[in-house]
Design a protein around this nucleic acid. Structure first.
Lengths: 340, 340
DNA sequence: CTGAAAGCGCTAACAA
DNA sequence: TTGTTAGCGCTTTCAG
């Protein structure tokens, strides 16, 4: 009942001997495979439990050539964004016997390649990874893996196998349209300076493109290094307005710095959204309790996680053309004037 | 150079044939084990790379009885708290060849047991898990695993093997002392109603204990269900003050709801910290950009992750008595009066 | 420095 | 319904 700390772990053989049946029968009981008489089943379960047997998936995986792991590769955990995606993935994987295993790349392609290599060496049943841009090496590994590969978050590009996400170009364009419709014209942009954050880059490109089509140019831009935070948002907002005091709108590359800017601007007594409008990106509900809600675009993170997981799990078929494009949805909040 | 999608993955044998050496030699090169002549090494590496060979860790793990995985089991990812712990763990594991694998329990003991069972079935080299309270089944599994087990976050109790954390009882007591020293006397508490959040419970117990020793009783308390958010903090703060308008201090069970309360109170024009003092718990730097910094206790999350990882990795020895108690540190912020 | 043989703990496939 | 046999792809061990 209370086994001592064993020198080596228990094997099927130990259970088999304790229960007086073959290893194969034990294996069947423990996996609910094949027909086993209720009596034997009971005997085996009792034996396994009382010994404290924990099956060895390493051996099982090797024998069955099947591993119930799904590799999930994302750039960052501290991002407020990816926990939501993971939530969606876990929720859909929960009843499939598949288990997500998370790897983090810190937006570094070389690290992504290492992480992928490590995860593929466990022969997972599928891969979910953020983004459509990857090193040659990473692409080669993924192509050769012979398992479902779902690239998430972005659909502006060509997937290796399947992509589930939103168009960031479109998200940028639509935000530009909303801002122009509301009558703002002196527009500034504040974003991270990360060449590897392709989605932020695509949003900016789309944003500027749509402005340009309306004959409007970005009046100022401010970039920062390192992670996003409220503090960074305050600081950059102060700086950009010091340089260009007549800006009437600020588009932030994410909600967190946007919220920092919003808090600062309110503290300064700036009339929002009258004198100055603000918008972020993501739709993180962490910030819901602020006295004023920041305008933003919902990046559909939960849905993206769910749909990706459903494909990997085989619940949904691979879509026609390999792409599932969800619609980024504009959330007006309180920081953009209602257009007349 | 550009292999087609293979029906089965490549094996050592494929590389061995391509390079014209034994599988054993290939294995040696790929693991940097034993002596191999530079010429052979080169040949093998070229062959492996050009084929796009990815080693099979399932087979390797079975043969070597060694798996470079560390199971990390935590209650939640969305908590702002655990990403920091994970950061500390990753940082220390990075140069050890060990890889963290994260499992999430949602504060449910039954789920914890399942997650542990699943992770142990991969025969990891160690386990890091949050908390000292576990089901009988979980404890039995951990005791029998025969690998280092490090319980983190808490030290108020008896570890299975090793514990690294802060005393939440002490954190609560120390906060009580600070509040009393600053002259507050009508003190309210706002916290989550989670029987399984033992650390929050211990903080409250310590807090009330220290108040009682000074002859002060909690004047009001308010509990909530579900996750923490700024919005919940606003709402509960409003409610508790509606019920007990003469409270002069609010102690929150975490920074996020504390910040929600702070924002609401400032919006109401309440004088903080004069008329009302506030404090949270954790020291999450996400909130650093708020115009007023919430008083809190730094729970030493990063250090906890690092120290735990060092022990699992064998960089540090298991401490005398099995417990590493870090000091929770009071951060005064701007929401508590400076004592005269 | 390199190779051959044995086997890690389990499951697929078949036999009884 | 249960058992037997033959591996899964690697690494350990020992021999050259």
């Amino acid at each position: 009942m209370t086994p001592q700390k064993p020198r080596r772990s228990l094997t099927l053989r130990d259970v088999s001997e304790a229960a007086g049946v073959s290893e194969m029968t034990v294996s069947r009981v423990l996996r609910n495979r094949g027909d086993v008489s209720p009596a034997t089943r009971e005997k085996v379960q009792t034996a396994a439990r009382s010994l404290g047997y924990v099956p060895n998936k390493i051996a099982g995986g090797l024998a069955s050539q099947r591993v119930n792991l799904v590799a999930v590769v994302i750039p960052s955990l501290s991002n407020l964004v990816f926990p939501d995606v993971l939530g969606g993935i876990s929720a859909e994987l929960d009843d499939t016997g598949l288990q997500p295993v998370v790897g983090v790349t810190n937006y570094a392609p070389a690290r992504e390649e290492t992480v992928l290599h490590d995860m593929l060496s466990w022969r997972p049943s599928g891969v979910i990874l953020a983004g459509l841009e990857h090193s040659r090496g990473s692409r080669a590994m993924l192509q050769n893996a012979g398992i479902p590969i779902v690239q998430i978050m972005d659909v502006d590009g060509t997937p290796i196998d399947t992509a589930v996400g939103v168009s960031h170009d479109r998200a940028g364009r639509e935000m530009a349209a909303e801002i122009l419709r509301a009558g703002y014209r002196r527009i500034g942009f504040i974003g991270t300076h990360m060449p590897e954050d392709h989605r932020a880059r695509k949003r900016l490109t789309g944003f500027e493109g749509a402005l340009a089509e309306a004959g409007v140019a970005l009046a100022a831009r401010e970039f920062y290094q390192g992670g996003s935070s409220l503090a960074k948002g305050r600081e950059l907002t102060e700086r950009i307005l010091a340089r260009e005091p007549d800006l009437d709108f600020l588009y932030y590359s994410n909600d967190l710095i946007g919220a920092g800017g919003l808090i600062w601007a309110r503290d300064q007594g700036i009339d929002i959204p009258g004198r100055l409008g603000l918008a972020g990106f993501n739709g993180v509900d962490l910030l819901d309790g602020l006295p004023v809600r920041l305008a933003t675009t919902d990046a559909r993170r939960l849905d993206i996680g769910r749909r990706a997981a459903r494909i990997v799990a085989g619940k949904d078929p691979r879509p026609e053309g390999g792409v599932i494009a969800l619609s980024p949805t504009f959330l007006p909040g309180d920081t953009i004037r209602r257009p007349r």
